[in-house]
Simulated assay, not measured.
Amino acid sequence: MEWPFLGSEALAAGLLNRYQLATRYDAVYRNVYVPSGQSLTPVQKAHAAWLWSHRRATIVGVSAAAMHGAKWIDARLPAELNQRSQHKTSGIVLRNDTLTPEEVTVVRGLPVTTPTRTAFDLGRRAGRTLAVIRVDALLQVTPLKLSAVAALIECHRGARGLEQLREVIKLADAGAESPQETRTRLVLTDAGLRPSHTQINVYDRLGHVARIDMGWPEWNVGVEYDGEQHWSDPATRAADIDRQARLEALSWRIIRVSAEILRYRPHTIVERVRAALRQAGAIV
């Protein structure tokens, strides 16, 4: 049986009996069931919360981002709905915002805020870095236009967090392919070294050499965030060494960033990038 589902509807339709419902399924919200022991993805959690609302609410916030296909959403976060209701339940955050018809669309048959409205909401929340990460994620998977988000500011002048949202719009970039790439870019931007390009394709006479996370192709300086597999997996490590050699043969200077450097020594990233740019002839 498809899930999540409303227990009362399944019983009324004769799809299962009360014993089966009690022994084979878990209630994630009141009257909303999934198979026992099943962990819900953010999309499934959003669907379950919408069923809990008696199919009346609009899916918003991180739940809307998940519905649009955004990555990097913590499955432990509560579902988010927009509904004018005083009834609350554990595991669901209820918003009470005014949404215009143009700010709501349908995804997988469910009412969801548009990518523009979703970015407008997530970009205003406390925590500039996380806000940029979430807007970056929406830019990656939807036709979101930052100019459209800016236009919403004029329509909702009294909303909270607009000052931060204006900054987030300036900082967001569709080229970020992970939260750590966004964090790396922000470290450089805050130091006055915002990369001029993201996802830079580099070629030699034999063809494609690499795609660099971010950098300055005009100076042949690139910055790469390397996840754990780049340091721990022998095959990946060997491929990285060959790739680095080919890039250096094309006069590229590559600054590699690890989780440890990004978290504890961000100044090291700035120092190395600034030195590489100066060596290339840039005035920074």
Rank of each mutant, 00 (worst) to 15 (best):
V132I: 12
S63A: 14
F5E: 00
D97E: 15
A239F: 08
V132L: 07
M214Q: 03
L16I: 09
R84L: 13
L130P: 05
A282G: 05
F5M: 08
L146C: 07
T142Q: 06
H267V: 09
G192H: 07
S251G: 10
A280Q: 14
L171R: 02
V209S: 09
D26W: 12
E154T: 09
V106W: 10
H267W: 09
R194F: 03
R183F: 00
A238N: 11
C155P: 07
R205E: 15
V112T: 04
E218I: 10
N220C: 14
N82I: 13
S147N: 11
L6N: 03
G192F: 01
P217G: 07
R76L: 14
P179I: 07
A238W: 10
H87P: 04
W52S: 01
P78N: 10
A75V: 10
V135N: 02
G281M: 06
A79N: 05
S232V: 15
A174W: 10
L81E: 03
A235F: 07
K71Y: 13
V34C: 09
V93M: 10
R194A: 09
L152Y: 04
T268V: 15
S63P: 02
H87S: 12
A239M: 08
A280V: 08
P143H: 06
Q229G: 11
R134M: 07
L206F: 13
L144D: 04
R30I: 10
S232H: 10
R24G: 14
R166W: 05
L94K: 03
L122C: 05
G207A: 08
H47S: 11
V107E: 08
Q244N: 09
I254G: 02
S196V: 14
D26V: 09
C155G: 05
D213M: 07
Y29P: 00
D26K: 13
R56T: 14
A46L: 04
Y33S: 15
G37A: 14
Y25T: 04
S147E: 14
P195W: 01
P234V: 11
V106S: 08
A150Y: 05
T41H: 13
R185Y: 01
A131Y: 00
H267P: 03
A79E: 02
R55W: 12
A126K: 10
V32R: 01
R108S: 09
T129S: 08
H156T: 09
S147Y: 06
P111A: 05
G37D: 11
Y225Q: 05
L81K: 06
S53R: 06
F120P: 04
A276H: 01
G127Q: 03
T100L: 12
A10L: 12
W219K: 04
W219C: 03
L130V: 10
A119D: 01
G127T: 02
S258G: 07
A131H: 00
T89K: 07
R263K: 03
D26L: 13
Q83V: 14
L130S: 12
A49E: 02
R108N: 13
V270T: 01
M214P: 00
I73T: 15
G61F: 07
V168A: 02
A66G: 15
H230S: 09
H54E: 15
V132H: 01
W50N: 01
K88N: 12
R124S: 05
R18C: 05
S147V: 10
L11K: 06
W50Q: 01
S147T: 13
P217D: 03
V93Y: 09
I200A: 03
L77W: 06
